[in-house]
Design a protein around this nucleic acid. Structure first.
Lengths: 157, 157
DNA sequence: AGCCTAATTAGTAATGGTTACGATATAAGC
DNA sequence: GCTTATATCGTAACCATTACTAATTAGGCT
């Protein structure tokens, strides 16, 4: 099914109105589904096709999309929240590689933690509903020189 | 070795001065090593034994401790940075359980990811230097009723 | 097609965590 | 003790986010 139709139906089903602003924002997310856009980035991109748009609307819409499980809000320690479209099938299951050299952020669309989650349940009596797994490091193709300490310390892991 | 002596040596080794303020802050961290204190929490606790203390000093000191690898800065999505003492032996290796019901945050002092890290290196050409693994869910002892959606959406995962 | 009304938006002010800054104080080496 | 680079204090500035108000609009109803 056309993803925008799908999302539009989810809006209607919960009595949310599908305004042109919301539609434009969703379209930007779909066009950039590989990225993890910040609010400011989404704002800028939507502005180019819909110049009359308030920043607060972007905040409100992304929060709404989060509530509808259409996007996931996350924080990579650069001081801004970022949003990622959720897969219908894999739900919350993906991990990240964050390169200290080039800053690239790659997504691994796999769930490697099923084994560990059952172990947590067994050993700690803790039923996992969601998880987060990020790896920080460097790509072998990114030959690095010098010390990266400062950059790493400013960020929150 | 006395941990405060150890840290004091690390300060000296890098020509940082061991001021009473810094010592008081480190002492609070050592006294609460199970917790993940926020800046404000550290500030309050140090104030009780060292009333004449500026908030900015706490920020600066915690950043310094992070630079020296004595603490780790992290973000659990509640809007404030939190700091955790690093083990000398296990370095960055620990995971978290975060309970949606009671808000409890438990640390797992184990490294379950060595296998996955070598897999990342093999399959993605990515050399891991650090990682983060958090599980969200509920303790079986926390019987829950109702919907938790809203709370989860406000937070960043 | 044209109302009605609750939902939505724009614009901006307020908030709150964090950082920057200038003047004062102080730890450590001589 | 004196010197000086370093650290502290208090506060103002900063910036992402949220709250608020008046004006607009989508969608249901006739």
């Amino acid at each position: 099914m056309n993803p925008i139709m799908n999302i539009s139906q989810q809006f209607a089903a919960q009595q949310y109105k599908l305004t042109p602003q919301r539609e434009a924002i969703v379209k930007v997310l779909l066009d950039n589904e590989k990225d993890h856009l910040s609010v400011e980035e989404v704002y800028m991109m939507v502005k180019s096709t819909y110049p009359h748009l308030g920043l607060a609307t972007v905040y409100r819409t992304l929060e709404l999309l989060c509530e509808l499980h259409i996007v996931e809000k996350m924080n990579f320690g650069d001081g801004v929240a970022r949003y990622d479209l959720r897969d219908n099938d894999h739900d919350h299951m993906h991990h990240h590689l964050i390169c200290s050299v080039c800053g690239r952020l790659e997504e691994i669309k796999d769930d490697w933690l099923l084994e560990l989650e059952s172990r947590v349940e067994r050993e700690y009596g803790f039923k996992v509903t969601d998880h987060r797994l990020d790896f920080k490091g460097t790509y072998q193709t990114c030959n690095r020189t010098g010390c990266k300490r400062e950059k790493d310390c400013k960020a929150v892991s």
